[in-house]
């Protein structure tokens, strides 16, 4: 067994968030540049330039790129040969979020209760997902997700007869309905299969795959290409003002499912696509 310190997990979560909200990943900046190169709408091109300048400014001035620094989503992949030095792993994750939000002047955007509201003041709790995997490492992946895009996400359980066309139609309807409100150009995570609760997690995991990295299965890699092209013909465009760059990337994740169901979920992220990862 390998011993990993809970404090190390806390510090890692903290540092990943302090960076994620301020410094855009290079793949994201590259995706903005690629989109700008192929954007036929002059206003769309102009907006893509503004997005590039905004992430450069945020980095230079050490300011969050967007004021909605989001809900904290943390995926822990824990090697089965790992033992933690003390109890309190999940509390350690929350503590890391709390410290990042305070130290980096991020926005507290979480309420204590969904109906009675009341800001928690420190952006906790984080949404924490734990998986056990073979090995002796701990992989920590964090996402900071603005709600403008999260609010436009959708899931539906289709009938198996709907097939691949049914999933594609649901995707296109969802993106079209999101329109300008999810701050396009978007990143799309599409979950297919599993069941009611799994399919939404699949979609979220898909979102945080390295930007634009194709699915390892050629069948799904081809669908990713085809669907991204279809999305980019909807005309929504940067900020919904019309144009080609409705989405920068589309990732699919799948799981086996019941003979009687075809679950699908589309998790939408905005152009402020913030995620980082580390391995301990």
């Amino acid at each position: 067994m390998r011993v990993v310190s809970v404090d190390k997990v806390r510090e890692t979560v903290r540092d990943l968030y302090k960076e994620a909200c301020v410094i855009a990943n290079p793949e994201l900046v590259q995706a903005f540049e690629n989109a700008r190169a192929t954007e036929p709408s002059p206003v769309g091109k102009e907006i893509l330039t503004m997005l590039i300048e905004n992430v450069e400014l945020a980095k230079r001035e050490n300011l969050p790129m967007c004021q909605d620094t989001g809900i904290a989503i943390v995926f822990l992949e824990i090697g089965e040969e790992v033992r933690f030095d003390r109890p309190g792993l999940v509390d350690g994750v929350h503590a890391g979020v709390r410290e990042a939000w305070k130290e980096a002047y991020l926005r507290a955007s979480i309420v204590k209760d969904p109906l009675r509201r009341g800001n928690t003041g420190d952006n906790t709790p984080a949404m924490v997902h734990v998986d056990f995997v073979p090995g002796d490492k701990v992989k920590i992946r964090v996402g900071a997700k603005g709600t403008g895009a999260e609010n436009m996400s959708k899931m539906k359980i289709l009938s198996p007869s709907a097939g691949v066309e049914g999933v594609k139609q649901f995707l296109l309807e969802t993106v079209k309905a999101a329109g300008p409100n999810a701050c396009p150009p978007l990143v799309l995570g599409v979950g297919i299969g599993g069941n009611f609760e799994e399919v939404t997690l699949l979609a979220k995991r898909a979102l945080y795959r390295d930007l634009g990295k194709p699915h390892p299965d050629a069948y799904y890699a081809d669908l990713e290409k085809e669907w991204l092209d279809a999305v980019n013909r909807l005309g929504v465009g940067p900020q919904g003002l019309g144009g080609r760059a409705t989405a920068l990337a589309l990732h699919i994740e799948t799981k086996p499912c019941h003979i009687g169901a075809l679950p699908v979920a589309v998790n939408i992220d905005c152009h402020a696509h913030r995620h980082k990862e580390a391995i301990l």
Binding site: M50, L51, P64
Partner: peptide
């Protein structure tokens, strides 16, 4: 205003 241009 352009969404996401918080820093700008």
């Amino acid at each position: 205003a352009i969404g996401g241009l918080g820093a700008t």
